[in-house]
Design a protein around this nucleic acid. Sequence first.
DNA 1: TTAAATAGGACTAAAATAGTCCTTAATTGA
DNA 2: TCAATTAAGGACTATTTTAGTCCTATTTAA
Lengths: 149, 149
Amino acid sequence: MLRLSKLTDYATVILSDMAKGQTQVHSAMEIAAATGIALPTVSKILKLLVNAEVLISTRGAKGGYVLAREPGKISVATVISALEGPIALTECSISQQGCEQASGCDIRGNWNLINQTIHNALESVTLADLIRPTVVPEEVLIPVASLYR
Amino acid sequence: MLRLSKLTDYATVILSDMAKGQTQVHSAMEIAAATGIALPTVSKILKLLVNAEVLISTRGAKGGYVLAREPGKISVATVISALEGPIALTECSISQQGCEQASGCDIRGNWNLINQTIHNALESVTLADLIRPTVVPEEVLIPVASLYR
DNA sequence: TTAAATAGGACTAAAATAGTCCTTAATTGA
DNA sequence: TCAATTAAGGACTATTTTAGTCCTATTTAA
């Protein structure tokens, strides 16, 4: 289904919530309450986002989480790889040594191209875009095909 | 990791093999031998591709599988959805009724936009492109951002 | 010093995926 | 007509991944 994991989905909801809110610092508990996601799960996600430097945390009383930079500078690609690791559709695009199916597999290069395109697409959308009211586009550009012709 | 399932990966290998081969009809056994993928697994994949009308099968002695149309008319998107169902990054983009997180989730529309873009990217690449020698592009176009500005 | 927070990691449960196998149906050719 | 060959369909098992929980340690404000 080529889908994001639930955790990644939650992460976008959490980040949107944080980006929209007036207050700067949000505790894990506040966020759990605001989004309806269970506290331990929220916690887990926030930790991953801190590791990826999407959020900055402060411990102790009055501590919590803050966006590390403006919503417009946090891309969807960053969020996805924070939760799921590198964005790559195929196994062999991640590891350098390729796969065992090496015989007869010269399609790797082309997969890389597709990965790159999708990565760019996700890189170009930011948190700021996500919280913006929905836009219905007239026309959607198709980029990949042009690379081949 | 936003990755394709192994079966989908195999499917592209199998289809590339079929598209490149001289012969028209390939039995499951031939394909298993050519690709190194276990026969029962190959079989499973071929059945799914027949259901999705990517392949046409004939039973009986001298039977086997043939591409349903030219490689240039079989898109990667078609192959992916044959194996994994509809291409959609988020759960709520598939079911119409949305999710329980409905409160505070007005980012759905924007996700749909992203899904659409990725779908288009995958739609624009065909089997013919995959078996073509790798092209290293000068520049990769970024389509999604333009939708927001 | 106490209460409120996060950090880190271990652990369990649930779900999805991969892979196998068996029985039935169709086709060809001897 | 019969035997061999090949796909269809579905059930089943094993494995892996993902989701979710919980515990203990650490940090900070009041």
